[in-house]
């Protein structure tokens, strides 16, 4: 465990908590893409199946359980409890365009052709693009609430920190995983445009609003 990874995990956790808290306190999931949340649920489920098969550390297991529970709780709040506030008219991204290629790529490019390994690979590929329905929703409505922006920012920071973690691990531990690195770079790049808007607008107290 190095500082980049720890801060990355904290940022990831913070993002999930910000989102859950926002939905719970406002009793509304307006502006949030349920499709992105479903994809993240699928990402955590397929990746953390190894909770049963391999033990890494208490930290690792606890975090996995927390991510799974928080993800399912978010989906429950969006699709059951506060379903009436879900803005599905603006959440129109076709997720099969992400899921099908992620499955195909996981079958083609993986470390080992075994069920758990392919599910892990699928989760890595899918995570890299899972935020697209949310970014699409923001671009469609042309704006995002500040709290939604904070959520997206924390999620982007998490991936950025993981990149630093991989650079560190490459020279300090001689450890690298090309699948995770390439997918992680793609994922971080997807947030770049948003980072720019976040820094130039949200941090200056303005609402994130795209030019018409």
């Amino acid at each position: 465990m190095n500082i980049f990874r720890l801060l990355g995990d904290i940022s990831h956790l913070l993002a999930i908590i910000i989102l859950l808290r926002k939905i719970w306190m406002s009793r509304s999931c307006a502006g949030i893409s349920g499709k992105s949340q479903l994809l993240f649920g699928l990402v955590y489920t397929t990746r953390y199946l190894d909770l049963i098969t391999s033990y890494i550390s208490l930290y690792n297991s606890v975090m996995k359980v927390v991510f799974l529970a928080a993800s399912y709780a978010t989906i429950y709040l969006m699709y059951v409890k506060f379903k009436a506030t879900y803005d599905h008219n603006h959440d129109t991204f076709r997720i099969e365009f992400l899921v099908v290629p992620a499955v195909a790529l996981a079958l083609l490019i993986n470390h080992d052709f075994q069920v758990v390994e392919i599910l892990w690979t699928f989760s890595i590929y899918l995570e890299s693009v899972a935020i697209l329905p949310q970014l699409f929703m923001v671009s469609k409505t042309g704006e995002a609430e500040s709290i939604t922006s904070h959520y997206l920012f924390a999620l982007g920071v998490y991936r950025g920190l993981y990149l630093l973690n991989w650079i560190y691990r490459f020279w300090a531990e001689d450890h690298y995983d090309l699948i995770a690195i390439v997918a992680g770079v793609v994922q971080t790049v997807l947030y770049c445009d948003f980072f720019y808007l976040y820094i130039t607008k949200v941090l200056r107290g303005k609402k994130l609003q795209l030019p018409a």
Partner: peptide, 10 residues
Amino acid sequence: ASSKGIHDEL
């Protein structure tokens, strides 16, 4: 070396 198959991250 590439540490493929070792998934110790979240």
